[in-house]
């Protein structure tokens, strides 16, 4: 059910580079997993409300209290490629 084209399309959506070997292996593994999870398709679910969150919560708000921010220096500390005041990014294309 997962063919070569879908595998490549999904990898592109996920911004995940795959080798040719990985494309083949992923196609087989995902097909096997989807074959297993397909059992949920047999259930009558039209009238069932989907659960997004196991514990009911709504409109979780807090007071807007100003607190100190992270310094630019600290925020940039773990960046693998930074300039004095920002993260560097390759050109778009």
């Amino acid at each position: 059910m997962i063919d070569d084209a879908i595998t490549r399309h999904v990898a592109r959506l996920a911004r995940l580079g795959l080798t040719e070997d990985e494309v083949v292996r992923m196609q087989h593994e995902l097909s096997a997993i989807l074959e297993y999870v397909d059992q949920v398709q047999g259930l009558e679910l039209a009238d069932i409300v989907p659960t997004t969150h196991a514990i009911p919560l709504s409109n979780v708000l807090r007071e807007d209290v100003p607190t100190p921010s992270v310094s630019a220096e600290l925020a940039l500390r773990e960046g693998p490629n930074v300039t004095a005041d920002g993260f560097t990014v390759p050109r778009m294309g």
Binding site: V37, V40, Q41, L43, L45, I48, V49, P50, T51, T52, A54
Partner: peptide, 12 residues
């Protein structure tokens, strides 16, 4: 067909 259905089974 996948994520939506799974969330419904979660309700069950």
């Amino acid at each position: 067909a996948y994520y939506g259905q799974a969330q419904r089974v979660r309700t069950l």
